[in-house]
Each structure stands twice: as C-alpha cells, then as structure tokens.
Simulated scan of single mutants.
Amino acid sequence: MIRIRLTLAYDGTDYCGWQLQPNDRTVQGELEKALAVVLGAPVRVHGSGRTDSGVHALGQVVHFDCDEKYATRPWRRSLNGLLPKDIRVVAHGVVPSDFHARYSAGSKTYEYSLWHERDFCLPQRSRFVWNCGKVDFAAMDAASRVLVGEHDFAAFQNKGTVVGTTIRFVSEISRHPGITEHESVWRFTAKGFLKQMVRNMVGCLVACGRGKLTPQDVAAILESGDRTLAPATVPPQGLTLVRVEYPY
C-alpha cells in the first residue's frame, strides 16, 4: 500500500462543508465517490481540516491509501474528469506512510474577503465576499494586533467540537488588497484553529472597523473566555482555506 496526497480547490457554496454527513452533499463525499470509481472500491479520505458549509478552499490537503500499482496514476486528470466542476484536484503525489493531512500540518492559512460597498456587490464576487460596508482599517489593524500570539481563544470558539485545549498560537493576521478596489482580504495563519474561530475573529475586527468595539474591548473579550461577549459569527462565504504547510 502507498499513501497519496492531493491538494484540492473548491467553491463551497453548494456544499454542507468538507466532512461526510448523512443525506447531505459534502466535498469529502464527492471526492470519495470519484475515488471509488478510479480504484474500484470504497476508500476513506482524510482532510487537513473541516471547512464549514459555504466555506471555500484553494489549498485543502487530503490523503488516502491505495495499492502501490496506482503510484504513477495521473490523479489530477483522472479525478477532475469525475468530480463536479466546483471541486478540482490541483496537485498530487506519493507521500511517506506516516504523513497525515491533519496531524502532520505545521500551519494553516485562511483568508477572509470583505466587500465595502453597501450599494452593490459584483455578481462575480458575491459568492466569495461578505458585504460589510465601509470600515476604519486603522481600527481593525490595531485590533488584529491584540489577537496575534499565543492566547486562550475560548471566546472565539463556537460549540460543536470537543478539544483538549482552547489555547492557540496565531502567527499572522494581516490586511491585503482584494481582487477589486472594493475589497480587503484578511489573512490568518496558525498551527490550528478552533471551530469557526477565524469567522469570529473577523466579526470582532469588523465591529472595531464600524466603531462598535475598540481594540481594548477585543482584549477584554479575549481575556474573558466568554463567547457570548463577542460579536456574532460572520457569514461563511468570505472564508477560504488558502494553504496548509508541512515540515516536509
């Protein structure tokens, strides 16, 4: 047996997230169906993370095991001919047997795209941005610095996943230009994130940008560990899993 690593890109709009769910269409489900056709038997795929319903990916990494006779299989061409058009394999390769898409990851990078024109949103962008309106970028930048580093992020975790600790180390939160002049992109990098943690951090940043919170308020929310003190979780469509990095 050998272990195959795939990198996927997908538009998550029409999926109930990455993870298999009974009676729901998921990215993992579609990929496993395509693999079953190629391999002639069911196979379980393991992903680097569970993107939520409506969340996108440019660099979702997965792995699965198969017979060594498939080592030179042109996986990108084979699977892209079977997968829906909103899921694509962009890279593939054989990896060591101890590689694990989730547990071997050194860091993950997500980007959240904001649209800043309340009067309209381009139809070509509406599936990939949250229209939050005008914001004060300086206030958001100041608030983002509060969240960088190692902290207990319990106040930014939604219920639904049991974890051993809510302490995480966020190495980067940075602002970048968007695809159009009406957008901004916020980049978040950490070894791992809690459930909907990025979307909850974005909610705090936007609240600061709207003048509803100050960076000092964000620090107090972080220190409290109380999810009810933080703003509501922002919509999923602005979020994209951009990259997963590994030490080898």
Rank of each mutant, 00 (worst) to 15 (best):
C132E: 00
V148A: 15
A143N: 04
G160N: 09
T161H: 06
V146D: 00
C121E: 10
V162Y: 05
Q157E: 15
Q124K: 00
D136H: 13
N131R: 13
T189M: 03
E183N: 01
G164E: 13
L114Y: 11
D136F: 10
Y112H: 09
A155F: 04
C132D: 01
A154T: 15
N131S: 06
C121M: 13
T165N: 01
C132P: 02
G106Q: 15
D136K: 13
A155T: 06
I167T: 11
W186P: 02
G178F: 03
T109F: 00
E111N: 06
I179V: 12
I179H: 06
G133S: 06
A190W: 01
F169K: 14
F169I: 03
S107K: 05
K108H: 06
S107L: 06
A105N: 11
R145W: 10
E183D: 04
Y112S: 04
A139C: 03
E150F: 03
F153N: 11
N158D: 15
D141I: 11
H176P: 07
F137Q: 14
T165C: 02
K108M: 09
V162L: 12
E183H: 01
S107G: 12
L147N: 12
T180F: 08
H151F: 11
V148S: 14
R187K: 12
A139P: 01
T189N: 05
F188T: 09
A138I: 09
F156T: 00
K134D: 14
T109H: 02
M140A: 14
E172K: 11
Y110F: 11
V135G: 07
H151S: 13
C132K: 01
E172W: 00
I173A: 10
W186S: 02
T165D: 04
G133T: 04
K159Y: 10
S144Y: 05
Y110M: 08
V129Q: 00
V162W: 04
Q124T: 08
Q157C: 15
H176A: 13
T166I: 06
